[in-house]
């Protein structure tokens, strides 16, 4: 069975309108994208949609009460809230370096959560 899905690419700010054709849940063609990112995004989006989660984590003894963090790679879209919950439960101590791993494997995704900002000690 053939199926067409319309997507807006989130790979970059251009937001290309992409059409993905699937046959028996297998991608047969991708059109409308301008670059490779769009092709990759579209194939992933219809089979295993993923997102990068950015949030903050509580900090003890830092110049700011929180540190901004992100998942180092994208995680399955359906696990966003699980990831958020785990990030919210952790409190880290200053100082923190940019890129420092704060959670090794968040919500069983195998993906690390890293700091996106340096936090100096207060």
């Amino acid at each position: 069975m053939e199926e067409k899905k319309e997507l807006t690419c989130i790979g970059c700010p251009m937001g290309c309108q992409i059409t993905v054709t699937l046959k028996d849940n297998m991608v047969t063609s991708v059109s409308g994208n301008t670059c490779k990112i769009g092709d990759t995004y579209a194939r992933e989006e219809v089979t295993d949609p993923r997102r990068t989660v950015t949030s903050i984590m509580k900090v003890d003894g830092g110049e700011l009460p929180v540190v901004s963090v992100k998942t180092k790679e994208s995680i399955p879209k359906g696990l966003m809230f699980g990831v958020m919950e785990e990030i919210g439960a952790v409190k880290v101590n200053a100082p923190i370096a940019i890129g420092q791993i704060l959670i090794e494997n968040v919500a069983g995704t195998g993906v690390a959560v890293v700091a996106t900002r340096e936090i100096k000690e207060k």
């Binding site: 807006t8 790979g11 700010p13 937001g15 997102r51 966003m80």
Partner: peptide
């Protein structure tokens, strides 16, 4: 806003 933000911030 940007189209990508409509997708990943609202539609999601």
């Amino acid at each position: 806003g940007l189209k990508r933000n409509i997708v990943q911030c609202l539609q999601d």
